[in-house]
Amino acid sequence: MSDDILLEVRGLRTVFDTRAGQVCAVDGVDVTVNRGECLGIVGESGSGKSVTFASVMGLVRSPGRIEAGEIVFDGTDLRKLSPRKMQALRGRDIAMTMQDALTALNPALTVGEQLAEMLEAHDDDLPRRRGARRAAIQARSVEMLTLVGIPSAGDRLRQYPHEFSGGMRQRIMIAIALASKPRLLIADEPTTALDVTIQAQVLELISKLRAELGMSVVLITHDLGVVAEHCDRVMVMYAGQVVEEGPTAQVIRDPRHPYTRGLLASIPRPALRGQPIRPIDGQVPDLVDLPPQCRFLDRCPEAGEACRHLIDMHPAGPARRARCIRIAVPETEKA
């Protein structure tokens, strides 16, 4: 494993047993996160983007389970760690923020208490003696809230989550996640619940902190615009699989998977006024008992007989891959 790689997931398969049958929410997903980079994960609801990273965090609970795959973080296979070691690592080395800050924060504890809980659990540099320890926690908490741009942090530590606005709550969750100085931050739809002017503030904050703290960020989102402006590389997921990955600018300029093309064409843009948008027909397939064929087949305008078998990822240029047989055909022969 190269020194530049912080997280490497190979062949991850996470399933949920339901009455209707086994749902394979994540099927053979590979993820590589390099040190210091921001990786964007794009997909629609049910594409498996959140479950992939819940698996990485060891947060998949019954009826879900990880069936196969390796999750190597900085040289350690997380699936082989004892629950206790995993507990120590989670939050300290890999932190996660959730989409809905109001449900993710504890409404009955003050923001200060929630920050302190995180520091108690993960900060080994705190002094042992009680008085000094409490003072250090207070100082670190103020420092964290100030870092995420919350004014008069000292007073606000004594307030409860409901006393903050949506954007402020998202900042608090980021402050808690970053309190232990993680090497990897997984931000699951950090701005989906926020208004655009507030979204811009929070995304700027994440980018700034990434640069300052030198951490890696995985940004899970359904918004290709967010990815275009903030991520170095992007992975597009569809129905539990990665269908395309590569450097963001290239993927957006020249998408190689028909689903990525469809997603880009679906975004309404003022520049396209008067022209019809070309939506992707149909809907995401039911993840129970998927037939062994390309999962995008039913919605794909380019599908043919050859797509009726399992499709692998194909190389699609330097550092790019796509799960489509058509990209194996050189551009010149396609026309």
Partner: peptide, 11 residues
């Protein structure tokens, strides 16, 4: 709605 469904409804 998701992006691809959103486009269908707008259309």
């Amino acid at each position: 709605l998701d992006v691809s469904i959103q486009a269908q409804i707008i259309q």
